[in-house]
């Protein structure tokens, strides 16, 4: 019997049994760091408040708004059909079910866009696609959609068109308030002519 064979057999056996003791730490599925950094510096993830408003008004079925503020803030005010997933519970299993559905566009919103951006980075790192951040967050929403400012006279026509849209959107989101018809009771001042004194004099 060849000695080399015996040696190789023992070596192979040792290596093969050794694989059983390799304990790999379970790594989270995530995208490559350089790809993530590349995605982070792209401004394409931002969508304007006007765009989001338009999608809500058109009842775009692909839109999924995820509000990453705290539950309390969410209950105070939220956009229609928004789902509340605070940043700290973003990685829970029930939250992750909302991501990665083909054909949906997820828009993260928060008060400004910082927290929403954080949520976007976390979800992006997990490899999900089709996610956006609403530029300026709800503060910007208030300033543009709920209280639109009329552009100055010299502004380009497109700004006026946006303004018109925002005025319409405002009506959609706040409800078209009917003018208060109950006018104040106006006191009818009856001016009485002073009674002329009885005709004096006479014939």
């Amino acid at each position: 019997m060849n000695r080399n064979y015996i040696f190789l057999t023992i070596l192979m056996l040792f290596l093969a049994v050794g694989t059983i003791f390799l304990h790999k730490t379970e790594k989270l599925k995530q995208i490559e760091p350089d790809k993530l950094l590349w995605e982070i510096i792209q401004p394409t993830r931002y969508v304007s408040t006007d765009h989001v408003a338009k999608m809500i008004i058109q009842q775009d079925p692909s839109l999924e708004i995820i509000d990453v503020r705290s539950e309390k803030e969410f209950n105070n005010f939220s956009l229609p059909k928004a789902i509340n997933i605070p940043v700290d519970s973003l990685l829970s299993e029930t939250s992750l079910e909302n991501f990665g559905i083909p054909g949906t566009k997820i828009v993260f919103i928060s008060n400004d866009d910082i927290k929403a951006d954080q949520a976007w980075v976390i979800a992006k790192r997990l490899g999900f696609d089709g996610m956006y951040v609403m530029r300026g967050g709800l503060n910007c929403w208030m300033n543009t959609i709920i209280q639109p400012v009329e552009p100055p006279e010299y502004a380009p026509l497109t700004e006026f068109a946006t303004y018109e849209f925002r005025k319409g959107a405002k009506l959609y989101f706040t409800g078209a308030k009917t003018e208060n018809t109950e006018t104040k009771k106006v006191k009818v001042m009856v001016k009485r002519r002073k009674k002329t004194k009885a005709a004096s004099g006479g014939c």
Binding site: Y5, T9, M12, L13, A16, V17, T19, I20
Partner: peptide, 19 residues
């Protein structure tokens, strides 16, 4: 069953087959 168990079992079978 983890892949390493299959690898170890298959290696033992193969080595036994060699001899």
């Amino acid at each position: 069953i983890p892949a390493s168990w299959f690898a170890a079992a298959f290696t033992v079978i193969a080595l036994a087959a060699f001899w």
